[in-house]
Design a protein around this nucleic acid. Sequence first.
RNA 1: GCGUUCGUAGCUCAGCUGGAUAGAGCGACGGACUUCGAAUCCGUAGGUCGGGGGUUCGACUCCCUCCGGACGCACCA
Length: 582
Amino acid sequence: MKHIRETWKVTVSEALGAMAREKGLDIATTVDNLVLETPPKPEMGDMGFPLFVWSKAFRMGPPQIAIALAERLAGVGPGTAKAIGPYLNIFLDRAAVARTVLDKSSRPGYGSSGSLAGTRIMIEFSSPNTNKPLHLGHLRNDVLGESVSRILRANGAEVLKINLINDRGVHICKSMLSYMAYGGGRTPQDEGKKSDHFVGDYYVKFNELKMADEAAEEKAQDLLVRWEAGDAQVIDLWKHMNEWAVSGIKTTYERTGISFDKYYYESQIYLTGKEEVQKGLANGAFFKAEDGSVRIDLSPIGLDEKVLLRKDGTSIYMTQDIGLAIHRHDDWPFDRLIYVVANEQQYHFKVLFHILERLGYEWAKNLYHLSYGLVNLPEGRMKTREGTVVDADALLDTLRDTALEEIQAKGREEALGDAADIAEKVALGAVHYYLIQATPSKDMIFNPQESLSFNGDTGPYIQYMGARISSMLRKRDKGEGKASDGLVRPDLLAKDAEWELVRRIAAYPEAVEQAGAEYNPAVVAAHLYDLASAFSRFYHDNPILNSDDPDTAATRLALADSVRNVMKHGLGLLCIPFLEAM
RNA sequence: GCGUUCGUAGCUCAGCUGGAUAGAGCGACGGACUUCGAAUCCGUAGGUCGGGGGUUCGACUCCCUCCGGACGCACCA
């Protein structure tokens, strides 16, 4: 489909150029000046060139230009050019296009491309703290990062997914201190709790501790100092609690299908970057302030000053990130490094990227902050202090249970075999789709009930369409219907109803490409929903397996199979399980 | 105060980077199961695209300005 568009762009720009020469006009008629879009209605054609811009130069009305072009291009293909008002629209040869689309889309990798072949992209996401379990906000980060990674890979990029575990700092010490006070040496196993929740509960209990002990905050600070000094007792406890937290978090990753190629631990790298700052001081990128701290003047980007090393020489968050970025580029030279981090840190990244540029790293321009918005609830904002944070595991459990109830209510347990497993996958599809369908940069409201709804723009709806098609194909394979007596005939797909599906299948690879270029999985999500709903309409109105005519049955089943292939591929990119039945 | 960002149907979101009559879903109302799974489908109502200027043949889209929300503006991470 894409090459057809490119061909027509060249054809039309050349025709415009020829027209200009004949009229003795000097007009720049390059392909770049041509806009090609999709007409709002299928009966207007498959693609169209608006001709308004050429009006002045040619001293002709756009409709006249359209007519002149259509005459000039009579007989030129692929398809036919027609003047429709101020537009030159292209009507494709549906049977011919259907033939190639059906052929391509019946192959496994359909939707993948090489548009990013040869590029190495590092992507950092999730980056949890080890003092509490994952919550709804993390789920957005995780599915965004994982999905973008998969989309980039589908476009041919070499991707390295990394996770920076935030395993040190005062917040970690707080849960440790709380455990020292209330834990009594107990383990997650003792209490029968998922280990990250076990740790998180002590972090919450720190609030109680503060009530009981006014010096709690100071003691936490003190614990941090002892940790940095390598105090054996502190380190030992830290290791235990950290392991509990991390292993629990990894369990949730497994549950949601998130994975990483490499883990970085803040405890191991928090001292890096100091040398780099010294180098910057030496070459004049930074300066030493009167109080002895090392700073950078950010006036070139309209900001103030930023401290990079405290007067006592200790480093801060920024220092660490400078060192880490350089370290990573040495480790694995990338063409692009994407940080999937909430939008509240956009200032941090703006400064970080600028600093790296000032330090003279030309690759600094290849750093990108994939900023995403907060997830709120219909009831309002999630607040840690008010205990309104939605725990990721609990949310998935609730949705899974609701889905299971629905399966039971429909009496489909028998047909499914492992109903609990299906319910879990529906829950996952519900959450992931809901989180991914909104534009990443915007804040969003997550409505759990709505996400699980089986009709509307949801994950389960798309899963359901996939299951229905799968069901049909199973029946064909068992010999039901007349399809096996028929031939697949693409010419039967030229009617509006079928063509609607063909063009969506044809456009799918471009959606994947666009999603990759924009780092926006929502593009794929929207495409899948459109496809699913178009298919739903189609099979409601038209018999497929049960067509009386064998050729029609065979052809429509082939079309359904292609729809299914696209869904499978697309849902895979969005971390949503494809279901054969539900 | 400064910076970034968002404001589209009652609610949740799209809108192909400036083009054809601004679209979906939910909710509301009304329809469709002796037929491939009704966890579905169809129809109706609902809009001054936050307000006002400007650029353009053409603006939800670009510029300015005001209003409203969010987030930042640490020697926290």
